[in-house]
């Protein structure tokens, strides 16, 4: 990617950007993951978004939430990416994408409590469940490899992961609703 990045002109601006991006990046990454089905392409879109944000940081209006601006930028980068695709993958359409981006913008503040709730919910799993989830999502192993490691059938691994995911989802919702995070 050959973007000509203009420097952010002051040290203060660098600090501001770093701080704002640090808070927004999880939401932006998550939004890109919804919109770009190919895992490798997601990183390209993210890079392109960050480059744009840095280049145009001076245009950012501090009265507006940074995350909304960043997601708006990401949305245009995603549309550009989609136009370049010769073969469209299995992805959400434009209307759905618009609604999801709106949801991200309006609920950006929810990202941090969700992350806290997730950690607390993970602590409620037993060690084997945690290991399986870690192998699947951190190490990126397939169900067959996990099954071999834990002496299980791949189908059982698949079912177990699905149930853990559903349980985690319910647990996070319960914690958010009860204000436990």
């Amino acid at each position: 990617m050959s973007l000509h990045r203009k420097p952010i002109h002051s040290t203060q601006a660098v600090l501001d950007f770093t701080l704002l991006w640090g808070k927004a990046q999880d939401s932006v990454r998550a939004f890109i993951s919804v919109s770009v089905p190919n895992v490798h392409d997601r990183e390209d879109v993210l890079q392109s978004t960050v480059h744009y944000l840095i280049e145009h940081f001076e245009e950012y209006d501090p009265q507006r939430p940074f995350v909304a601006w960043a997601i708006g930028v990401a949305r245009y980068r995603i549309l550009e990416y989609r136009q370049k695709q010769t073969r469209r993958g299995r992805e959400l359409g434009g209307d759905a994408l618009q609604m999801v981006s709106q949801a991200f913008m309006e609920h950006a503040d929810d990202a941090e409590p969700r992350a806290d709730a997730l950690r607390q919910c993970l602590q409620m799993l037993n060690q084997k469940q945690l290991k399986i989830i870690s192998r699947k999502y951190y190490d990126g192993l397939g169900h067959e490899a996990i099954a071999a490691e834990f002496d299980m059938k791949p189908n059982t691994v698949s079912v177990m992961i699905r149930r853990i995911r559903l349980a985690l989802g319910k647990c996070i919702e319960a914690r958010i609703e009860s204000g436990a995070c």
Partner: peptide, 13 residues
């Protein structure tokens, strides 16, 4: 959107 955020956080967490 919430699922995507969870998905994002899950590996490292």
């Amino acid at each position: 959107a919430e699922c995507a955020i969870d998905e994002q956080n899950l590996p490292a967490a």
